[in-house]
Structures are given as C-alpha cells and as structure tokens.
Design a protein around this nucleic acid. Structure first.
Length: 879
RNA sequence: GGGUUCUUAGCUCAGUUGGCUAGAGCACUUGUUUUACACACAAGGGGUCACAGGUUCGAGUCCUGUAGAACCCACCA
C-alpha cells in the first residue's frame, strides 16, 4: 500500500506547493481566450507576520480562485503588500527611540533605508506565510504599494486631481498627533471614555463650562442659541468687556444654532484653533482663529506666564489662578467625556489648524455615465445603481451613512515613509512662494530664485491603496516611461484591459470606509470603471472566549502559522470556513481544527481504501454503474457538485463546506464504501474518488492534490488545473432502491442496538428490492442470514414498505414492544399534524401543489406504518 | 444622540426569496478491536428557536414592542 495509515500534513504540503508553483498553474494568461475571474488581494501591511484574520481572507479568496480555475476560467489572484505608511513609521520611530535616537538625528535618507530593510524582511516572511496557507496567487504579478509603477500611478492621480481642482491646499482644522508629529484622518481616530473634571467659569455676565481650561486664553467670542430667551437681551455682534485669565478682554456675542440651550448654561466660548465644532462656527461667522497650543502640545505666548508649559501640567495651575481671581464657579468631578486617540500609537489627538492638502469630495467635476458628479455622488451612485453589490447588503446602509457625513479628505502626512507629495515650492524674488505640481520640478532656473524644494510631506497610505485594483494591473515597463500619459499607459496595458474591473473584492467590514469606499472614489475618477463588481465582507475572528484578539492579551492571539504544523494547512482552512457567514464575526476554537484534521484523515482513508481496491485510477473515464448503490452514489455526487458550485458562486462558503463534508463522510464513506465491500465496482469507485477530490479541492487543496499525485504517479496531471465534475447519467429508479435498502438496514440496526444483540437473522417475502440486494443488506446490517420465506415471523419492519422481518424470540419481542409503542405515539402525533394541515382549506388552496402532494404522500406512508405497527403490538399483547 | 447586528442543543455556530418531524461540530450515553480510518463505526439522549403580540393556510425565517449582549458613526462646550 502506498498511502500510509494516517495523513501527516507536514510531510506533503511544501512539496505540493512547489509542484503547483513549478507547473505554472497560478499564472493567469491574458492570451488564453478563457473568461477571466479576478480578485485583487487586499495587500497586508508589512508590519511583520500574518494574523489569523489574514488566514481567513486568504482562505476565502483561494476558495473562489481555485473554484473558478476548476470551472475553466482564467483565474487571476493578484497578490501584494502595503507599505502601511503610518503603522510602519510609528514602528520604526519606536525602535529608534528605544535606541536612544530619533529620525531627525539620523536624517531622512538613513530613516528610509532602515525602513526599507524592515519592510523587505516583513514582506518576504508574509509572502512565505501566504504560501504556507496554500494561497494560489499569481506571484509573477506580485505588487507593492511603493513599486515604481504604482508610485507613478499615485503621482499621476494626484496631478490629475490637482489640475481638475479636486485637490487643494488650505488651512483647515485637522487631527494632529503631537506624539507622532503628523495629521491623521477622521477614520483613524478611536475614542476612549475618560472621567475628568468639568469646570464652570465666570465669563463676564455669563457662566461657561469647560473640561479644558488650558485652551481658554484666547476665547473672545461668547456663543448662544439665537432662540434662547434667557439671553435675548444680548444681540449678535454686541461687545462686552470681561475680566479673563490674563486680564481684561473684549468679548463679542455670536448667535449660532450649534449651541444646545439645554446643555449647561446654554452659553459657551469657542477655541476655533483646537476644536472641530468651534472651527466650523468660526468659519460661519468669519471669526479669528488663534492658535493657543503649539504642535508639541505646549502653550504659546498668548498664555502669558504659562507660555511653554505642557498642557497637562498647565491645567491645575490655570485653575488655581482662575480660583484666585474669583472666576471659578464650581467643579464637577464626575464628568465623563470621550477623548480622541490616534489608532496607531494611541497618542492623544489635538485638533490644530494646519496648511494641508485635501481632496474635495463635493466639487462636481467627475465624468460618470455622461454627467458631471462630485466624488461623493459617484460613490453613492455606483452602489445605488447596482454597478457594485455589497454582500451582505446591510452594509450598503452603513456605507451611505458614512458618505453623507464625509468631509474633505486630508491626504498629507508629516511622516517620511510613503509616497512623497509631487509638489514643489520656491521663493521668488519678491519673497513670495511659488508652487509647482508635477513629478519633477521645472528645469528653468531664473536669476535670483531659490531652488525648487519638494513638499516634505507624504500621502495618506489609503491614497495609494485606493488605486490598488488598477495600479497593480498597469504594465510596469510602460508605467516608468515618462513620455506616456496615464491614459496611454492604461490603454496599452494588456492586463488592465483584460482583468479590470476585478470580479470580487473580498475584505473585512472594518476597512469598508478606509479602503473600499476610497477605491471606488479614486478608480471611478481615474479609469471611468468601477474597481470591482462585488464586495464580500467577512467578519472578524475573535478569541475562543468571544473577545477581540488583542496585543494587550497576548494569550488571546492565535497565530495561524502555529496551527499548521500540528493540524495542517487544510484543517486550518476548513476550520475557518466552517460556520463562516458574511459580515458576522466568529470565534476561533481549537476544536474546529481538530474536527477538520479528522475530516482530512477520513478523506485520506477513503483514498487508501479505493487505492487498495482498484487496480489503476483512470482519469476522466466513464463510470459504469451496475448496483443500486452505484446509481445512488452517482446521484449524490451529481447533486453535490451542482449545489457546491452554486453555493461558492453565491458566497455561501459554509453552506458549500457542509455539503462537501457530508457528501464525503456520510454518503461516500459510511454508505457507498461500505456497500462496495459487498460488490465492488472499480469504475464507480474511481469516479467517486476523482469527484470528491475535485469538490473538496478549493477548501482543502493540499490533501486533495497529495492524494491525486499519489494515485497519478505515472502521468503528470494536476488536480489544481483539472475540470470541475460534470453530471453523470444514472438510473433514478435504481438509486431509489438503495434508499429502501438504507431504511431496512437502519431499522435492523436500531432493533439490534435496542435489544443489545450482536447477531441476528432476517426474513423477507415477495420483495424484489431485497432479493436484488440480499448480500448487501446482510453485510450492512451485519446479519447471519437473510432468507426468503412464505410467512414472516419475529418483528416486522415498519419504516419500509418492503415485507421484512427481524427474527426475535418472544422475550425479546416484549422488550422491544416499548420502543414500538413510543414510535407509534410519535406516528400518531405527526399523522394528526398532517391531517390538520391537509384538512385546512387554506392550505390546499394556497400552498404549492407539490408541497400538498408531498404531505399527502407522507400521510399515506405514516398511516400504513402505523397500521402495521398497531397490528403487531396488538398481536403481541394478546399472547 | 443616530445606526447595525446578535440572542437556536451543555459549548461554538449554520439555517439565503416563509413550507418535510429545526441541523452540524465538539461534549454526553450505550454498544463495537468490522481486514480504509479509534483522528473510527453503529445506535441514542438533549432545543417552547430570548420574551410578548401581529401578518399568514403555515413563522426560527416577515412586522411591532420588550429585555439582554456586541459593534459602528457622531460627539456637548
């Protein structure tokens, strides 16, 4: 025997993967003429290693890709990694600070060199890990967000948007992280509840509340709701002299509806430079916006004696001064509010007004379906019009909600790691700044001008990710040719022409806004195409206890790569798919990996059995069904092939998994293989093995290919490039006969178990089915004998219409009587239910006729079973 | 404050246009050294589908409300 007794995944996986890679099975071929099926792999951040969440998305996408390949499509799964600007930058800065240095000391070039080294290592590790999970991606097309070709796309997109007026530079309030010294986007903020003191201060005739007295130095506007009658005497624009922290100031009254009259005293002062809401009020009324806190979190000269002090230290001192001046009215110690943190690094965010680059989401400049739209409108339109479908559908609602409240997107970051902004500045002879937007600065050097300096900032990492589906498909050689326009590059890139738009974007719902929405934004704008036709959103994998896996609880983190040596990559994949449903989170459990390891072993042993039973597996040869079991198993394989295909196409992965699992374990192993021990038909056995290997391949690629290879040592066919099974002809009547056999066998087994009998004999009368399958029933039910008789004796089987008896003595019959009575009770119950249902005039009238027929047939069967049963019970009692 | 999801067997979860006696894995009980597999085989126990109403011939599935849990968005000075 060539196959060992148990499947040891580790022995085969690496070799099998190499076999696939060498064969070229992963390569998509635009010249093939086959219909394309394309998935752009969400590029993982190059921050070290893959997580269990990565393993889930790799598995889901690999299932779709392998399925498409088996269905004869030109399957392209384009892999890659993301430079993850902020995440990586923060990581390197942390390393530097641990070494007692910082980025300014080592300089920009050294910093970038060091970062490149780090991400290079991460990338190699992660690409290897993807292979270990079995990802059948097209590595020849691997891309990286900082590749020259992608960088070109980023620059060209920026320039195009700038020229269209969609990108502008301006002073706006942004989320500033004083720790990392950069801006972050709204989506990158996390909020944390914090209990702090809430101070009520005296501000002239008013009382105002604040949790942040240190920002109040410059407050010279007092705001109230226009309809608030308590303050009707104050008119918009009135000025009042008030005594404030550092002496008297003149306050101006502003009426604005942003004020909630029910909160506090209904009066507030504003700090436009350090609050989004205050900034907006100031914008509306054209008010001054004075900076109070510098970019390192220290107070500016406006704070007078507090200048240069860190805000946290300054607060108690300021409160003390207010108290001394009699301006402190009260302190609420139990005030709970949210503070904004940077998701990366968890630094406290200080809103600041800064000169930054923004994408205008409201300017109607984008050509889409023959009309001018704003970016926002295109994003809404493609979902509303069905150009893109989101699975599950409920996320469309969240998506629209997010777009409704979308503000201009701040895309400049004050970090070094990333795509440098393609903008150049120089000071002219009048000491004014000139701006030039382009990949390289103009070459003219006029007399008296300073040299062109590139903007030191880099772009938000999502700006480059937003281009991912198409920037990865442009021809890298064309992309670096400066003489070509972006349009020309796209037009002449063979891959882009064949593979874009992609078919499915499979990713987590947590980056719906960050990424999915922005891909839609940028791709429709640049290419005039949607980036993908469907979006499938998977849930998060949580720890076994249902909580999030988090770095603060290292024991909660499951490393997918540590699961593989013990259970195998296939078991890991199957465990992740079992019970997965779109948009819903799932818990990781080792029990799942174990259950699927067992399943793999089952599959392995089916192969061992068939290998030992048949001479040579003939690929693609027609099965020649003879017995009832042969016809039955072909029927099962046909049905399963169709429904698994349908389920995968509809993203019902767990449904497809269960179908595959039970076909293999229940139908094939428990019934057909057992039946084949009575009468062996190697043509059908071969067909069974070939079919189940194909059906299971997308889920468990390693073991199925390993078996295929072991059995196909002589030829060089690969399962990965085989054809999805086509239905095979069979005799439906014979297939049905096997179902009767199953009923007979099951009931005999039940009786034997109930009576604790190892052995037994059965009798039958006038039954062609039993006569035809006599040795089979004998073997499956483990009978000593099954003989034809004129008169039945013992227990008559009631669950089949065939006249079959199991031989028992009187004592045993009495013992079994109780089970029969139970059964009779159940029958009566369900007969009653059926009668009520059929007796209901509405049912017969409104329910579909096939359902009514089915119910009637059931009722007939049950009545006949009950009749037999009742008669038998009566005969026993009368003894 | 606005929104979404979840609540089905002891545990973890499927159940996709409403339609067989509500399923799976693990765990549990009983039996089996059956020559592919004890990572197995056979038989079985276990559920008022959170609760209360409604629509319907028919509701785990649709609607309304209640309770509990999780998450997302906004953010109040």
């Amino acid at each position: 025997m060539r196959l060992p007794k148990t499947y040891e995944a580790e022995q085969y996986e690496k070799d099998i993967y190499k076999l696939w890679e060498r064969s070229g099975a992963f390569y998509a071929n635009p010249k093939s003429g086959k219909e394309p099926f394309v998935i752009s792999m969400p590029p993982p951040n190059e921050t070290g290693t893959l997580s269990i969440g990565h393993a889930l998305f790799l598995t889901l996408q690999d299932i779709m890709i392998r399925h498409a390949r088996l269905k004869g499509k030109d399957a392209l799964w384009l892999p890659g990694t993301d430079h993850a600007a902020l995440a990586v930058n923060a990581l390197i800065e942390k390393q530097l600070s641990d070494e007692g240095t910082d980025k300014h000391q080592i300089g920009r070039d050294e910093f970038l060199k060091r970062t490149k080294e780090f991400v290079g290592n991460s990338r190699n590790t992660m690409l290897e890990q993807m292979r270990a999970i079995g990802a059948s991606a097209d590595w020849s097309r691997t891309r990286y967000t900082l590749d020259d070709s992608l960088n070109r796309c980023v620059n060209e997109t920026f320039i195009k948007m700038y020229e269209d007026g969609l990108i502008y530079r301006g002073y706006r309030i942004v989320n500033w992280d004083p720790n990392l010294q950069t801006t972050v986007s709204d989506d990158e903020l996390v909020y944390q509840e914090e209990k702090s003191k809430f101070y009520t201060l005296k501000y002239g005739p008013f009382e105002i509340g604040t949790a942040r007295p240190e920002t109040k130095f410059g407050d010279k506007y007092v705001i109230m709701h226009p309809d608030d009658e308590r303050y009707a005497q104050y008119k918009h624009g009135d000025t009042i002299d008030v005594e404030w922290i550092n002496g008297p100031i003149t306050a101006t009254v502003i009426k604005d509806e942003a004020v909630d009259p029910k909160f506090g005293t209904g009066v507030m002062t504003i700090t436009p430079a350090h609050s989004h809401v205050d900034f907006e009020i100031a914008q509306r009324h054209g008010l001054d916006k004075e900076q109070i806190i510098d970019f390192h979190g220290k107070l500016l000269p406006i704070a007078g004696e507090f200048e240069g002090i860190n805000i946290a230290e300054a607060r108690p001192k300021i409160v003390e001064k207010l108290n001394k001046k009699g301006l402190l009215v009260s302190i609420d110690e139990e005030y709970v509010h949210n503070i904004a943190l940077n998701d990366r690094g968890k630094g406290v965010i200080e809103p600041q007004i800064k000169l930054q680059w923004f994408v205008d989401v409201n300017k109607k400049i984008v050509d889409w379906k023959g009309k001018k739209h704003s970016l926002k409108e295109v994003m809404q339109s493609v979902i509303r019009e069905g150009d893109i479908e989101i699975v599950p559908k409920r996320f469309e609602k969240t998506y629209f909600h997010w777009i409704d409240s979308l503000r201009d997107w701040c895309i400049s970051r004050q970090i070094w790691w990333g795509h440098r902004i393609p903008v150049w500045y120089r000071i002219d002879t009048d000491n004014r700044e000139e701006t030039y937007v382009g990949i390289a600065p103009p070459t003219d050097q006029s007399e008296g001008f300073h040299e062109w300096q590139q903007d030191p900032d880099t772009l938000d990492t999502w700006f480059s990710s937003a281009l991912w589906t198409w920037s990865t498909l442009v021809d890298p050689k064309l992309a670096v040719d400066g003489s070509l326009s972006l349009e020309a590059i796209l037009k002449d890139s063979r891959d882009f022409q064949k593979y874009h738009p992609t078919d499915v974007m499979e990713t987590g719902w947590d980056i719906l806004f960050f990424w999915v929405a922005r891909m839609i934004l940028a791709t429709t704008y640049v290419t005039g195409e949607v980036p993908f036709k469907k979006v499938y959103l998977h849930g998060m994998i949580r720890a076994e206890d249902g909580k999030k896996m988090s770095k603060s609880r290292p024991e909660s983190i499951v490393d997918p790569l540590s699961v593989i040596p013990k259970y195998g990559a296939d078991s890991l994949r199957l465990a992740l798919i079992m019970g997965v449903s779109p948009g819903n989170d799932q818990n990781w459990g080792t029990a799942k990996a174990e259950a699927n390891r067992n399943f793999c072993n089952k599959l392995w042993n089916i192969a061992r059995y068939i290998e030992a039973s048949t001479s040579e597996l003939a690929v693609g040869s027609q099965p020649e069904p003879k017995t009832a079991a042969d016809h039955w198993v072909i029927a099962k394989l046909n049905e399963a092939g169709e429904s698994i295909n349908e389920a995968i196409s509809n993203f019902n992965f767990s449904g497809a998994y269960y179908r595959m699992y039970h076909l293999i374990w229940d139908d094939v192993a428990d019934w057909y293989i057992e039946a084949s021990k009575t009468e062996l038909n190697s043509t059908v056995l071969d067909h069974v093995l070939e079919t189940i290997l194909k059906l299971a391949h997308p889920f468990a690629p390693f073991i199925t290919e390993t078996i295929w290879q072991t059995l196909h040592a002589e030829d060089d066919t690969l399962l990965i490039t085989a054809q999805w099974p086509k239905p095979v002809k069979f005799d439906a009547k014979k297939a049905k006969q096997f179902e009767q056999v199953q009923k007979i066998v099951r009931e005999i087994r039940q009786i034997k178990t109930a009576l604790v009998k190892q052995h037994g004999n059965a009798l039958f009368k006038n039954s062609q089915i039993v006569a035809d399958n006599e040795p089979l029933i004998k073997s499956l039910a483990k009978l000593e004998s099954l003989v034809k008789t004129e008169d039945g004796r013992g227990l008559k089987l009631t669950q089949t219409t065939e006249p079959v008896w199991f031989e028992v003595d009187d004592e045993e019959a009495k013992k079994y009587l109780k089970s029969l009575q139970e059964r009779s009770k159940e029958l009566k119950e369900s007969i009653k239910n059926l009668e009520v249902r059929l007796g209901n005039p509405g049912y017969a009238k409104k329910a579909p006729s096939n359902l009514v027929n089915e119910s009637e047939a059931q009722l007939r069967d049950k009545r006949s079973e009950l009749k037999t049963l009742t008669a038998y019970i009566a005969s026993q009692k009368s003894d």
